[in-house]
């Protein structure tokens, strides 16, 4: 579904100050609601404000409070077993956010490392890694996911494996292009002339200079991971009961569409808003670190 199409990023340079500040401001205003949401899903369960999440067969499929027949006892309504949907929504959101973050990390980590190696050492290292990148990008990812899950069953580690396998190639490609651009910069030659070793140049100089780009990529990857997770969980192949994510809430909402559409409505809306904010933030960060876009 979400396939990142990024321009090859050129080497970052020191930012003209005003444009930099503007990008930072917009990044702040995008990051703020995300941070609030993340804190909310972790703190709300501790406050005791949420309704009791247990079953109540006298109050099944209650609509949300703002619709006719709803009550504030269950602000988002109840499911077919009378369980409170707000309580589910908050705990599912927690897992969704964790999966988004970890899913991005497991893709960015190896992707960045391989991209760095390919871009810096070139030669046969680059050739091997580039073929792997092409091969990965030549496989429709949902099929890779299906094949792995068919064999390994659904569990969180398998989900992370899928997210890593489907996400690393894009990160590797962008990191490789950026590394290729930076390694030609003269300060790298200067360091070599001073007797700096290759690992030092790669990890102490090139990597820090890529940090901004990597953070931006990682942010976009969080959005991708959340979308992939929601699709897999929706199909019953990602997060499965007793665990709950927004994606798996959509799965249980699918059967109830005709009777209780709100079960699927709110988690889906939450995913959309979350991913939209993450994508906007990622775009803002990428613009900030891409001098070509910034100079305009």
């Amino acid at each position: 579904m979400s396939q990142l199409e990024l321009d090859p990023v050129t080497a970052p340079v020191s930012p003209p100050r005003r444009a930099g500040r503007r990008a930072r401001t917009s990044a702040f205003w995008l990051a703020l609601p995300l941070a609030v949401a993340a804190v909310a899903v972790f703190v709300l369960p501790l406050t005791g404000l949420l309704p009791d999440g247990g079953q109540n067969l006298d109050a099944t499929r209650q609509p949300p409070a703002f619709l006719a027949g709803g009550s504030w006892a269950h602000p988002l309504g109840t499911d077919k077993l009378g369980q409170d949907l707000l309580t589910q929504f908050v705990s599912a959101g927690r897992l969704t956010i964790v999966i988004g973050l970890v899913g991005a990390l497991v893709a960015i980590g190896p992707g960045t490392l391989l991209g760095l190696l390919a871009g810096y050492f070139r030669g046969w290292v680059d050739r091997v890694i580039s073929i792997l990148i092409d091969a990965q990008l030549a496989l429709p990812f949902i099929l890779v996911a299906l094949a792995i899950i068919a064999n390994r069953g659904s569990s969180l580690p398998v989900l992370f494996l899928v997210l890593a396998l489907t996400g690393w190639a894009v990160c590797a490609r962008v990191t490789r292009a950026a590394t290729l651009a930076i390694r030609e910069r003269q300060f790298v030659v200067g360091l070599r002339a001073a007797g700096a070793s290759e690992p030092r140049i790669v990890f102490r100089h090139i990597l820090p200079n890529l940090a901004g780009t990597i953070v931006a990529l990682g942010t976009l990857q969080v959005g991708t991971a959340i979308l992939v997770e929601s699709a897999l969980s929706f199909l019953g192949l990602g997060v499965v009961p007793p665990m709950n994510s927004w994606g798996s809430m959509l799965a249980s909402g699918q059967d109830e569409l005709s009777q209780a559409w709100w079960i699927a409505f709110f988690p889906g809306l939450a995913i959309t808003v979350l991913v939209l904010l993450v994508n906007l933030l990622g775009d803002a960060l990428l613009t900030h670190h891409d001098p070509r876009k910034r100079r305009r």
Partner: peptide
Amino acid sequence: RPEVQVVFQDPHGSLD
């Protein structure tokens, strides 16, 4: 290598 040092055209590009 340190016996040979290079000064380039673009001074900003020569500094991390």
